[in-house]
Design a protein around this nucleic acid. Structure first.
Lengths: 169, 169
DNA sequence: TCAGCTATGTTACTCTATAACCTTTCATCT
DNA sequence: AGATGAAAGGTTATAGAGTAACATAGCTGA
């Protein structure tokens, strides 16, 4: 059964942003960690779209957004915090960062990455995580984290817009 | 059924090296591409052990090995060639490169990476590749390449040396 | 021998990330 | 309120990874 992901379809992205920021606020309050102005702003910028952003791109955006000129360590510290809290994921193949739509549920980093439009679609496939853990166990390997990065063409860019009638509008 | 991988067990690593180099020679002859001295030497250095090596580490090793002092582009071109031919894989999470034990069969890049001893174990799980392709297809995504990098502790480092009696000597 | 292609050498630079140290901010205790 | 200690952010410099652009060398085939 095919199902075009939200990131690939037309959608009210303001909802994505506000939901993510609200979830982040609640998560941080619940854990007793501080979602400072800077961290919130970085998270907001990352959520501007569904494309992973590099740290230096974020620095430029911060500079443009509010004459707040920050140096690399500042951005990286904010990113480290967001990574630790599971609010963003790192896309290794792109040296870039993307918002996590479900930061409260512990899960692995599994992504589909479109080489044409640049979007990254997070997968939610616990049974895939389990299968990977199983394969690792067969080798006596104790899994701590998984990074699956699948490159190719998303539904829109591959021209597969007819899949469920909502693909490309 | 558990099975400690070769890379984790004591083994005659000279065999790994000579097998890999011989396979590379044959593969290049068969394809009509040139396995030059430099490319061969880089491949040999990469095969010194089962740990991924960074490009700059390779540069140092080249300098030590034969007073052949090479600049970054030289190493990266050799690495690009070896990647194109499938003789090595890139480990994104480490910005490093590792030899491929089965360059003749087309396959995806699936690795277990030990954070303690640094070895990377290549998985050979076609059904896992297939499952990933299936998950992607459900999202209308057309897969071109996969990168699975599982971090954790290998059989030796986790202390699981009793798995099949050959784990740690 | 010449032309053309492939591989390598060289210089300079971009992009990504961190070390080390200093200052500010904030929460808490008295 | 004021002191205090920890956490966050600012600043400078540098390390690490990768590439652009151009020059040279070496093979290959007419």
């Amino acid at each position: 059964m095919e199902h075009t992901p939200i990131a690939c379809s037309h959608h009210d992205h303001n909802h994505c942003i506000s939901d993510a920021l609200e979830a982040a606020r609640q998560l941080c309050v619940g854990r007793g960690v501080r979602l400072t102005d800077l961290r919130l702003q970085v998270l907001e910028l990352i959520w501007q779209n569904h494309k992973p952003l590099g740290a230096y791109t974020l620095m430029e955006m911060l500079a443009k957004a509010n004459t707040r000129r920050v140096a690399p360590p500042t951005v990286y510290r904010a990113l480290d915090f967001l990574l630790e809290q599971g609010l963003i994921h790192r896309i290794n193949v792109l040296n870039a960062f993307i918002g996590c739509p479900s930061p409260t549920t512990k899960h692995q980093s599994h992504f589909l990455i479109c080489r044409a439009c640049g979007i990254a679609i997070e997968l939610d496939q616990p049974q895939l995580s389990q299968q990977i853990i199983g394969v690792a166990q067969d080798a006596g390997f104790q899994v701590e984290s998984q990074s699956l990065e699948v490159s190719g063409l998303c539904a829109n860019c591959a021209g597969n817009t007819e899949h469920d009638g909502h693909g490309h509008e």
